[in-house]
Computed example of a mutant assay.
Amino acid sequence: MQFTYNTDKRKLLSSLSHGAIFFSTTLFSIGVPIVINLLSDDPVVKSNAKESINFHFNVWFWATLIGIPLGILSWLTFGLGGILFFPVVALGFLLHWGLTIWALLHCFSQPDEPFRYPFIFRLF
C-alpha cells in the first residue's frame, strides 16, 4: 500500500524541527521537535525531528564541554581568556548556525529526503 504525504506540510514540520535550534538558549527549543516527532505520522518528518533532537544534544554537549573551561579560564585571567578564545566561540556559533541553515535549505529543496547532520553522535 502506497502512502502519499503533503509536501508543504512535510517542508513546514521538517523546517520547524531543525529551525527550533535557533532558540537553543531555552529548553523550549527541544520541545518543538519532540512534539512534532510524537504527533506526526510522516516518516521523513519523524526522521528530521529525531535528527534535530540529536543535534540539540550535540550543541549542548559541546557548548558545555568547551564553555565551562573557557569561562573558568576567562574568570581566572580577568577576561583575557575570553578575549583570546573568542575565535573558538565564534567558530562554534558559525558551525551551529551554518549546519542549521544547511538543514533548512535541504528541507526546502529535497523534502522527500531526511537531512543528516555530519559528525554528530546520535542517541535516537
Rank of each mutant, 00 (worst) to 15 (best):
T26E: 03
H18N: 12
F57M: 14
S17G: 10
P69N: 10
D8S: 15
S47I: 08
T64S: 14
F57A: 12
L13C: 13
L12Q: 14
Y5D: 11
F57K: 15
S15D: 08
S15C: 14
T25A: 09
N58C: 09
N6Y: 09
W60H: 12
E51D: 09
N48G: 11
H56N: 07
F61C: 08
N6R: 13
P33E: 04
L73D: 02
L70A: 05
S47V: 06
I36R: 01
V45F: 04
S15F: 06
D8H: 12
D41I: 04
T26H: 05
L65T: 12
I30Q: 01
I36Y: 00
K50I: 03
E51T: 06
S24M: 12
Y5L: 09
G19F: 00
Y5C: 05
I68E: 03
N58P: 04
I21S: 08
T26G: 12
F55L: 08
L16R: 11
P43A: 06
A20W: 02
S14K: 04
F28W: 11
G19D: 09
V59A: 10
D42P: 06
L38W: 08
S29L: 00
I66G: 04
F61G: 10
F55T: 02
F55K: 02
F55H: 04
F23M: 13
E51R: 07
H56T: 11
I66K: 01
G71Y: 11
S52A: 15
N58G: 13
S17I: 09
N48I: 00
R10I: 13
K50A: 11
L73Q: 06
P33D: 08
I66D: 03
L73P: 02
F61L: 15
T26I: 00
W60I: 06
K46S: 10
A20I: 05
N6G: 07
L73R: 06
E51K: 05
S40G: 07
T25S: 10
A63Y: 07
L65M: 15
S47P: 05
F57W: 14
S52F: 02
F28P: 00
T26D: 07
R10F: 13
S14R: 01
P69A: 11
K50R: 15
I36N: 03
N54R: 08
V35N: 00
V35W: 10
L16G: 10
F55N: 00
V44L: 04
I66H: 02
L13E: 05
S29G: 09
A49V: 13
D42S: 04
